[in-house]
């Protein structure tokens, strides 16, 4: 389809990749890698997901994988075009329960966090249930980070919400029994090119609010100014000798963006951390969507698709 020269619009091209590695403590104590990540991208949308299996649960490496695979499958099965968080989460919930039953997983096997980003040119969202880090990079180079933690490293897992056995109540009891206790924290940081990190805000939410999960919405305008969205399990905050914010920055410092670019970056970063005897103590999973914006216009140019800056 060709458009007249006066209609300028931006085309967005998505690339996505992911990788996950076992943490030092898991090697030491003979545990498997219980983090997992997946990604997908095409011309119309991109989705990335990470999941962190509970280290004191059951076979939660399976739970983490079930979480990531089902999330991606859910998104593929639903119609594209700025899917809402509610529709994705509701479909995922039904599929998760059925799949866990089919595989004979116990509830303790399914304890794994969920953190995903779904992005389309017209908008998207990030959703978290559990803990982890979300990074957003703007086209001007500004990086914004949000880190979500639960007190005593006891996150609320989606499986608790899925459970019919009163696990939500037990979760509250494990945290002291007061659902209004502010034990779910978030801190937000900003770093402009050439400047230092600045804490933009921090807040503590109640257990009952935290259990609902966190949703961060992106409208079309936000998508226009975004160049990357990345999600990380909390392993990114466990890199010894490296501030977690700098660890995130290092992992987003892509030299090339073809193919397995996240894997290349994480592999090299781990080597560089390792030269100083550092590395992630916990498993680490990360997944990123890169958004290339290309302004086009002209009578003889065929526009490929997407977010129109002129209505």
């Amino acid at each position: 389809m060709c458009r007249p020269f006066f209609l300028k619009e931006s085309t967005m091209k998505f690339r996505a990749d992911h990788h996950f590695v076992i943490g030092g403590d898991h090697v030491t104590y003979g545990k498997p890698c219980q983090d997992h990540a997946l990604s997908q991208a095409d011309d119309g949308m991109a989705a990335v997901v990470v999941s962190d299996g509970c280290s004191s649960g059951g076979e939660t490496d399976m739970g983490a994988r079930l979480t990531t695979f089902l999330l991606m499958q859910t998104i593929r099965e639903l119609d594209k075009g700025n899917l809402g968080q509610e529709s994705i989460f509701a479909s995922r919930h039904a599929a998760f329960s059925a799949a866990a039953t089919l595989l004979g997983l116990r509830e303790t096997d399914t304890l794994a966090t969920l953190l995903y980003a779904y992005l389309a040119p017209s908008g998207g969202h990030v959703y978290l249930q559990g803990d982890g880090v979300v990074a957003r990079e703007l086209r001007d180079g500004t990086v914004m980070l949000s880190r979500f933690d639960w007190a005593n490293n006891m996150p609320f897992y989606p499986a608790y919400a899925d459970s019919v056995n009163g696990n939500s109540e037990r979760f509250v009891l494990a945290h002291g029994g007061d659902p209004s206790a502010r034990l779910f924290t978030a801190e937000h940081w900003v770093r402009s090119p050439g400047s230092l990190w600045t804490k933009a805000s921090e807040e503590a939410s109640s257990l009952q609010d935290g259990m609902k999960g966190v949703s961060i919405a992106f409208d079309a305008a936000a998508m226009e100014e975004t160049s990357a969205v990345a999600v990380f399990t909390d392993g990114v905050t466990s890199v010894s000798g490296v501030d977690w914010k700098d660890a995130v920055l290092r992992l987003l410092d892509f030299k090339t963006t073809e193919g397995a670019f996240m894997k290349r970056r994480l592999s090299r970063a781990l080597k560089e951390f390792g030269k100083d005897g550092n590395g992630p103590r916990d498993d680490l999973a990360c997944a990123v969507v890169l958004i290339a914006h290309d302004k086009k216009g002209g009578t003889d140019e065929c526009i490929e698709t997407t977010a129109e800056t002129l209505a």
Binding site: T256, T257, E258, G259, A260, K263, R264, S267
Partner: peptide, 8 residues
């Protein structure tokens, strides 16, 4: 061109 290489 290196930017066209996809493997690790």
């Amino acid at each position: 061109r290196i930017e066209h290489l996809g493997a690790t």
